[in-house]
C-alpha cells in the first residue's frame, strides 16, 4: 500500500514536470534557435550568429538580401510604434472608465446594478471574432474611417472589462472600517477618498492598467478586423509574415517580444504579490 502510494505520488510529480516542460521547452527552443546561422532550414543547427537580431534592428549585415523579408526595418518599427500608441491610449481610457464603474458598483446600490455587472462581463466571454466583425460592420456603416481611432475604440470595449474585474477584486478585499474611521474623525467624503480609499485601491488600478497594456499589445483578432488597410500593429505584422512563409528573422523578433512581455508581466505579478 505504501509503495503504491509512493509510486502514485512519484508519477504525479513526473506528470507535473512534463506539464511544465510542455509549456516552457518550446520557449527555450525558440530562444536557442534564434541564434542559429542556418538561413534556409531554421531547425538545423549550423553555427552561432547574432545576424538576425542585427538585421531586425536595422544594422548592416552580411546576409544575402533575398533570404529576408523585412525590406526595411522601418515597417517593423512603424508596427511597434502603432502598437505602443494604441496600447498607451487604450490603457488610459480603459483604466479610467473601468475603475469608475468598479467604484460605482462597489459604493452605490441602485436599480440595474446586476445588469451592469452582466454587461461588464460580456465582452470578455464574447468570442473575439464576433466582437471584431460587429465592430467592423458598425464602423463601416457609421462612416468612421478605419485606422488607429477605430482600433483604440474597439480594444477599449473589452479592456474596460479587464480593468473592471481587477479593480473590483481589489475593492472587494478592502477594509471598510478604515473609511468609517476616517469619516468619524471628521474627514469629508473627498478627503476620505483621496487619503484612505485611493491609496488602498492604487495597486488594483496599476495592476488593471498593466494587464490592459499587455493585452492591447497582444490583441490580434479584433485589431485585424478593424485596422483598415493603412495601419499595421506588431501582432498583425508577425501574422502577415507567418502567412507568407517563415524566415529566420521572425525568430529574433519573437524572442525580443517574449523577453519584453516576460519582464513586464513578472514586474506586474511581483508588485501584486508584494502588495498582499
Amino acid at each position: 500500500m505504501k509503495i503504491a502510494r509512493f509510486l502514485f505520488r512519484g508519477s504525479l510529480f513526473a506528470y507535473t514536470g512534463l506539464f511544465f516542460a510542455f509549456i516552457y521547452i518550446p520557449l527555450v527552443l525558440i530562444a536557442v534557435y534564434s541564434f542559429n546561422s542556418n538561413p534556409v532550414n531554421m531547425m538545423t543547427w549550423t553555427g552561432f550568429t547574432t545576424e538576425w537580431y542585427a538585421q531586425v534592428l536595422g544594422f548592416k549585415t552580411t546576409i544575402s538580401e533575398n533570404a529576408l523579408y523585412i525590406e526595411s526595418t522601418d515597417q517593423l518599427v512603424q508596427a511597434v510604434w502603432n502598437s505602443l500608441i494604441i496600447a498607451g491610449s487604450t490603457t488610459v481610457i480603459a483604466t479610467v472608465l473601468g475603475t469608475a464603474v468598479a467604484i460605482a458598483l462597489y459604493r452605490f446600490a441602485f436599480f440595474g446594478k446586476r445588469f451592469y455587472r452582466t454587461v461588464m462581463f460580456m465582452p470578455m466571454l464574447m468570442p473575439d471574432i464576433v466582437l471584431g466583425i460587429a465592430l467592423l460592420i458598425f464602423f463601416v456603416n457609421s462612416g468612421i474611417k478605419l485606422g488607429l481611432t477605430t482600433i483604440i475604440i474597439g480594444q477599449c470595449t473589452f479592456l474596460i472589462s479587464y480593468v473592471f474585474i481587477v479593480v473590483s477584486a481589489r475593492l472587494a478585499g478592502m477594509d471598510r472600517t478604515l473609511e468609517n474611521a476616517s469619516a468619524d474623525l471628521g474627514a469629508n467624503e473627498w478627503v476620505t477618498f483621496r487619503k484612505v480609499v485611493f491609496p488602498q485601491l492604487l495597486p488594483g488600478i496599476v495592476g488593471g492598467a498593466l494587464l490592459a497594456f499587455i493585452i492591447s499589445m497582444d490583441d490580434l483578432v479584433i485589431t485585424y478586423f478593424i485596422a483598415g488597410v493603412d495601419v499595421t500593429t506588431l501582432p498583425m505584422f508577425i501574422f502577415a509574415m507567418l502567412r507568407r512563409g517563415i524566415k529566420p528573422e521572425i525568430n529574433a523578433i519573437a524572442v525580443m517580444m517574449l523577453s519584453f512581455s516576460f519582464v513586464v508581466a513578472s514586474l506586474g505579478l511581483y508588485l501584486r504579490s508584494r502588495q498582499k
Binding site: P26, I214, L234, L258, S261, F262
Partner: peptide, 16 residues
C-alpha cells in the same frame, strides 16, 4: 506567465 506573452509568437513556435 505565458498568458501575458504574445499569442502569435507562441503559435509560431509550434510551426517551427
Amino acid at each position: 506567465l505565458p498568458f501575458f506573452t504574445s499569442l502569435i509568437v507562441r503559435l509560431f513556435i509550434w510551426v517551427l
